[in-house]
Write a protein that binds this DNA or RNA. Sequence first.
DNA 1: ACTACTCCCTGCCAGC
DNA 2: TGCTGGCAGGGAGTAG
Length: 297
Amino acid sequence: MPELPEVETVRRGLQPAMEGQRFLEVEVRRGDLRWPLPKDFARRLAGATVTGIGRRAKYLLVDLSTGDVLIMHLGMSGSFHVFQGNDKQLGRYRHAREKHMAGKHLAHDHVVFHMSSGTRVTFNDPRRFGSMKLVARERLDDEPLLQGLGPEPLGNAFDAAMLAQACKGKKTSLKAALLDQRVVAGLGNIYVCEALHRARLSPKRLAATIAGRNGAPNERAERLVEAIKAVLNAAIKDGGSSLRDHRLTDGDLGMFQHSFRVYDREGEKCRTSGCTGTVKRIVQNGRSTFYCPVCQK
DNA sequence: ACTACTCCCTGCCAGC
DNA sequence: TGCTGGCAGGGAGTAG
């Protein structure tokens, strides 16, 4: 499901619910996520206070008073639901859960955090590609999951010079390069398609063509960086995109899917002003690409 | 060192 | 109606 804007939206939803609070109890209903949760997972969390919630690429990083960091990833279908209320309001809780899940698949509630304020935070993930991992903060720099990640696309380090340098000499398509988390971290299939469309660049173009020889950025690299930042900021403002199962932590839907210019719009009219093209779907590296063959060159 | 492909898992939908 | 194949927002591991 979630790319950077959705994960950032989740982070902002979890923050007021968890920050400054203690884990009273951690209920692991199914520990076989992407990797099995270790046997001491719940025990290591219990009693810890959440001192902050951050994000790196598509990972949520929960800082704990114990010196551990809880690293969480939503995979393709993971979501969090926050319920603020006490144990006497279980009816309201179930109602909220059903709204969140659109009435289905409560069986995929795999982990429940019971916080000291009475708030419960439920992790639901039908496909179980999501993951959780506890690591000591002092070893975070050596954490393999975070090790090779490229820059944050909304950070200052991400600019045309950097992107061109990373794409220099790449034999792969621009689409594949942007999906590569080592080039830039946090983009997924939707926002790569959307950013390429905004930059009027073909997804089939060779990645190396946004850099001159010696790796200097050209005007395409400038356009692309601007487009990436713009589409991510717009999506975050809208609470991310809801295709089938992405919900905000309060059960509401993200809204950015209504602003898609190409993604999931095969056969529909290109939304570039003045363009007469029709959105086309192709497959690149086994994944759908949506683009306009008329205005994206 | 690169790049491309397979696989993990469940749900949903179009087409027979 | 019920089955089947294909597809889905990610990414680790592996085979070239």
